[in-house]
């Protein structure tokens, strides 16, 4: 059974590219356009969350904090996918509970390698 990955980004193009890359590799994807949307769509069946950092309504760091506070999903791996490369932001994400950090633009094989490692 294919693993389900929640991709969160306010950009439809990025969601499309992430979804395209993941589906090509055999994963199922669910899309959310920001942190709030992601919280309504996240279920226990999801194996991984890939989220942008800067988003309207709720940003990526806040989304991680919210997910980590949920008993059901507190251990789900979360990868940040962002244009930010500042170490302060990275540290903030790590402290909030992010599993990894991928800087945009990514090559599909980079993304898949990271996803593969995280999902074991």
């Amino acid at each position: 059974m294919a693993k389900i990955i929640l991709t969160v980004d306010d950009s439809a193009s990025v969601r499309q590219m992430v979804g395209f890359s993941l589906r090509e590799a055999g994963y199922e994807t669910v899309e959310a356009c920001d942190g709030s949307d992601a919280l309504t769509k996240l279920t226990a069946q999801m194996s991984l969350v890939i989220t942008d950092l800067n988003m309207p309504k709720m940003n990526g760091i806040e989304l991680i904090r919210q997910i980590r506070s949920q008993s059901n999903n507190r251990y789900v791996p979360i990868l940040m996918l962002t244009t930010e490369s500042q170490s302060i932001k990275k540290q903030e994400a790590k402290a909030a509970g992010a599993t990894g950090w991928i800087v945009k633009p990514f090559r599909p094989e980079q993304l898949l390698a990271a996803v593969g490692k995280v999902l074991g």
Binding site: S85, A98, W101, I102, F106, R107, Q110, L111, A114
Partner: peptide, 15 residues
Amino acid sequence: PASEGGDQCGEVELF
């Protein structure tokens, strides 16, 4: 450009 052998892509770091 990537097609000419350059790598314009960002880094990946797992914590």
